[in-house]
Structure formats: structure tokens, C-alpha cells
């Protein structure tokens, strides 16, 4: 029983970081309908921003803010340099994929130049070292903090999307750029804001996961991009609540398959399930409507 509970705790804390990252991905891929392969690089960038801030002695909340803003700025730069330029010149959206992928590679190269290829760790702190043992279940302070931070970020994003004028603008642009222009929504600025939000979420997720595993490396973004895409599949394209649910689900599935499935196919089971979902219900587990206008 305690093994089970332990896995639940681990799965939820892992899943919450996936959820934060995936919310950003689904905003870009699903809502803006832009294929941005640099999302994983923003995640990696955020982890390094947070790491440097922590090394400078900033308290954890401020370091997280640095990671978030840093990731957001990277997102804004990607939009300004690549995606906006492509839109203005009428480039195909596939070109965005190629360019953002190249950008991601550049960023990995730059991170290697600055920080080296070695794995780096966060400086020791009470946050990392405090843990409780309840009935054989080990709960780290860090895990609780990560969960709380994630929930706060989710709530903030939900509020932004549902209640604020920015959120309305994003939803209008997602529906149709032309309609948005007609009703006077500043399309360019709205897309820029969305990139900031998505980059910020990626950066924050980078710091959270970097702390959780206490590992920061230039290559951490690529695997995370795979997780992000997987969660989008689970939750449905452009479905923000779906991304949250999918993130937790993926975290739990991963942790449980490591703990319980002794066969060497443990990862394959998770992916096999996802693949099955794609074939049976490709619009995501949590989608409500499937028919779109022709």
C-alpha cells in the first residue's frame, strides 16, 4: 500500500510539471496552430535561468520568476525573429517547424558553449532537503511546492484565458485571425502575448523539473518536447484543461509503469496506450466535440 501511495505522490509531482509544460505547448500548437519545435529549448533555457538565479542567491520564488520571465522572453524572441517574419512573407507553416527546430539546435549549442555539456545541479537548500516520512511514504517539501506552484500557474492561465481581455483576444485569434482583425483585436500583439505565456510556462516547467530531478542539462529539452506532444495527444489539440489532465495522467502512468511493470517493455506500454488512443480517439481523451466545419 505504501508503495502505491508513494507512486501516487511521485506521479502527481512529476505530472504537474508535465501539465505546466503541456499547457504552453497546447497554446502554441493547438490554439495558435503554429508548429513550434523550440518549445523544449525554452524549457531548457528556463531551467538554466532558474539555476543561475538560484546560484546568485535569489530565493526560490524569485528564481522561479526569473525562469518564467526568461522562458517567456525566449518565446517572444522566437515569435519576433521567426514566426512573425514568416507570416509577413507568406511562408508556409512548415517553414516555421524547420526554423524553430534550427533555433532549438542553436539554443542547445549556445547552452553547451556557456554551461558545458556536463549535468549541473541546484545549490543545496531547505527546499531540496526537507522531507517527511508518513507511514513509509516519503514526501519532499519540494514535491508539495511543485504541486502548489503548478496549480497556481494553471489557475492563473485559466483566469487569463477565461476572464481577461487578453484571454478573449487569444480565443478570438484562435477562432480566426480575420475575424479578430475585423472586431479590432490587435492580432500581432495577441500572438506575441501567447508566445510569452507559452514560453513562460515552458521556462517555469524547466525550473520545476530541474529541481525535481536536480538535473539541468542542455539536452533536457528534446525529451520534454516528446512529453509535451504526448500530452497534447492525450488531452486533445488546443484543449488546455485536457493538457492538465493529460500531464497528470502521463506522470502517473510513467511512475507506475516503472514501479510495477517488471518487463523490459514498461515504457512501451505507456506509449502503446497512447498510440491506441490516437487510433481510437485521436481528438484526445478529453475532447467534447469532434465534428468541425468543412
Amino acid at each position: 500500500m505504501s508503495v502505491f501511495l508513494q507512486q501516487v505522490v511521485n506521479g502527481i509531482s512529476l505530472g504537474s510539471t508535465y501539465a505546466v509544460f503541456a499547457m504552453g505547448c497546447t497554446l502554441i500548437f493547438g490554439v495558435l496552430n503554429i508548429v513550434n519545435m523550440a518549445q523544449g529549448a525554452f524549457f531548457m533555457g528556463g531551467a538554466y535561468f532558474g539555476l543561475e538565479a538560484a546560484r546568485l542567491g535569489l530565493p526560490a520564488p524569485l528564481a522561479l520568476l526569473v525562469a518564467l520571465v526568461g522562458g517567456g522572453v525566449l518565446g517572444v524572441l522566437a515569435e519576433l525573429v521567426i514566426f512573425r517574419t514568416l507570416r509577413v512573407r507568406g511562408g508556409h507553416r512548415w517553414m516555421g517547424l524547420v526554423a524553430s527546430l534550427a533555433l532549438a539546435r542553436m539554443m542547445v549549442g549556445i547552452a553547451q558553449e556557456i554551461f558545458g555539456t556536463q549535468v549541473q545541479r541546484y545549490p543545496a537548500s531547505t527546499l531540496l532537503d526537507t522531507a517527511w516520512d508518513i507511514d513509509g511514504v516519503r514526501i519532499q517539501l519540494l514535491q508539495i511546492v511543485i504541486l502548489v506552484v503548478s496549480i497556481v500557474l494553471m489557475a492563473l492561465l485559466a483566469l487569463t484565458l477565461q476572464r481577461s481581455s487578453t484571454g478573449r483576444a487569444i480565443r478570438t485569434v484562435a477562432y480566426s485571425e480575420d475575424v479578430a482583425r475585423i472586431v479590432g483585436v490587435p492580432v500581432g500583439r495577441t500572438i506575441l502575448t501567447t508566445f510569452f505565456l507559452a514560453g513562460g510556462l515552458a521556462g517555469a516547467a524547466g525550473m520545476l523539473l530541474g529541481n525535481l530531478f536536480n538535473v539541468v542539462s542542455p539536452f533536457m529539452g528534446e525529451q520534454m518536447l516528446v512529453k509535451g506532444l504526448t500530452v497534447i495527444i492525450l488531452g486533445g489539440l488546443g484543449n488546455v484543461p485536457g493538457a492538465v489532465a493529460g500531464g497528470f495522467l502521463l506522470g502517473l502512468v510513467e511512475v507506475f509503469s516503472v514501479a510495477y511493470v517488471s518487463s523490459s517493455f514498461r515504457d512501451a506500454i505507456g506509449f502503446g496506450l497512447i498510440f491506441l488512443i490516437l487510433l481510437v480517439k485521436p481528438t484526445g481523451l478529453f475532447s467534447r466535440f469532434e465534428e468541425r466545419r468543412a
Partner: peptide, 22 residues
């Protein structure tokens, strides 16, 4: 090795931005 990744990335970005149809 690292400089290659950076240069390569920059070159591809440049090609894409200046020749958006390939």
C-alpha cells in the same frame, strides 16, 4: 562541435526567413 550546431541553426533560420518557399 558546438559552434557547428549554432552556425548550422543560424544558417537554416536564414534560409527559411529569406526563402520562405524553399
Amino acid at each position: 562541435n558546438q559552434l557547428r550546431e549554432i552556425l548550422m541553426g543560424a544558417l537554416v533560420v536564414a534560409v527559411v526567413l529569406y526563402l520562405p518557399d524553399g
